[in-house]
Design a binder for these strands. Structure first.
Lengths: 203, 203
DNA sequence: TTCGTCATGTAATGGGTTACATGATTAC
DNA sequence: GTAATCATGTAACCCATTACATGACGAA
């Protein structure tokens, strides 16, 4: 998880740990947050694995500065060739490991770096996963409605509506993906001639 | 978490492990699932703590059955007096431990056993927590909108809408709570005058 | 000079999961 | 009899969190 997120971000630009965490928050939004307590050890592991290297940052760049005792300047990390390979591998995953609750958001956040076909497969995988869940909850509600207490029922229904909402969202995304897939012209990147789909129109 | 859920369920009726897990699924719905790998050890701990006791279930009830070698009949658990006390303690919590993402659903599921004032405080706590988050995400989106890639933006907006939706839900719940608090008459159960959101219309 | 925030890190702990192992009971 | 599902449990692991410790740097 963190692995994909870090590799994905570093593939856009070299960053140091602190910065990385801010970007993580900004990129994943409500979806997930990571603490330094997991970030730094993770960076260490990834460095050991040869996926990233430390690139001297600001602090050390001060040229002939006296040999700093502690040497605690910023440590800027960047991807190695192996790291890019590893990232490609992670981005190519199109199974449950990409569409389960804990992982989907991170994979989605890096769809910009993901193969279009993989994107669609992940979106569809998640959608059918959620559809199953919707059926399960819906029948569970129907079976037990009368016995359920007021609050439990409310919780079930809110959950059900959340799932339904996400299914609709996914369906829209899938349609958009298909349209741009069958229209290989244009759509080279997010900023096409005019505003395109960026539109936050009425629901 | 599991602790509250288990105590809450056992307070409604004695159950054995397997049953407990089914009920857990049915009660928490989309919100959370627990595996046996956490359930059974948890039961063992709670037994050691004196909150629950094993009550002979079906298998052992078979009267003068020959001394079963393994003796692996169902083990029905029930609350002890200490367990009820512990449950009351957990249900009285009205701080972050009750309204954070991971915990709120479980607390909400047992609102039926929770003091009305605590209910409102938890609902309000969660709502203001979510409102903060909403502000954070909203400004983050505005600040970075132009730089964000298509998918990241989509993820942010979906997240934002989810948060806004939950805030509205909470607001409705809070109002309902207040109404029944100031109108001690009636309201012994769900059946409201108009169907509100219960509507599960055509697919 | 003191406060906030930038910046890096470790140790202890936590709360679960997966995979495995076992066996009883029920339905066909 | 055999498959499904009910039923209980353990061991190994995972991925993170919290709390702590340290220190540089800029602004008030």
């Amino acid at each position: 998880m963190l692995e994909l997120a870090v590799l994905g971000l570093l593939n856009e630009a070299p960053l140091h740990g602190y910065e990385l965490r801010q970007r993580l928050k900004a990129t994943l939004g409500t979806f997930r947050a990571f603490s330094y307590g997991s970030l730094y050890p993770s960076l260490r592991r990834m460095k050991a694995a040869g996926w990233i290297t430390e690139d001297e940052g600001d602090a050390a760049v001060v040229a002939g500065a006296p040999p700093l005792t502690g040497r605690r300047g910023k440590v800027v990390y960047k991807l190695t060739a192996d790291g890019k390979e590893r990232l490609a591998e992670l981005l190519a995953e199109a199974g449950p490991s990409a569409w389960e609750d804990e992982t989907f958001g991170v994979h989605f956040a890096f769809f910009g770096q993901t193969d279009p076909e993989v994107r669609v497969r992940i979106l569809e995988g998640r959608r059918s996963r959620l559809e199953e869940r919707r059926e399960g909850v819906a029948t569970s509600i129907d079976r037990t409605r009368s016995r359920l207490d007021r609050y439990t029922l409310q919780l079930q229904e809110h959950g059900l509506e959340s799932v339904e909402r996400e299914v609709r969202w996914l369906t829209e995304l899938i349609e958009t993906e298909r349209r741009s897939a069958t229209t290989p012209r244009a759509v080279p990147d997010p900023a096409p001639p005019h505003t395109t789909t960026t539109g936050r129109g009425a629901p």
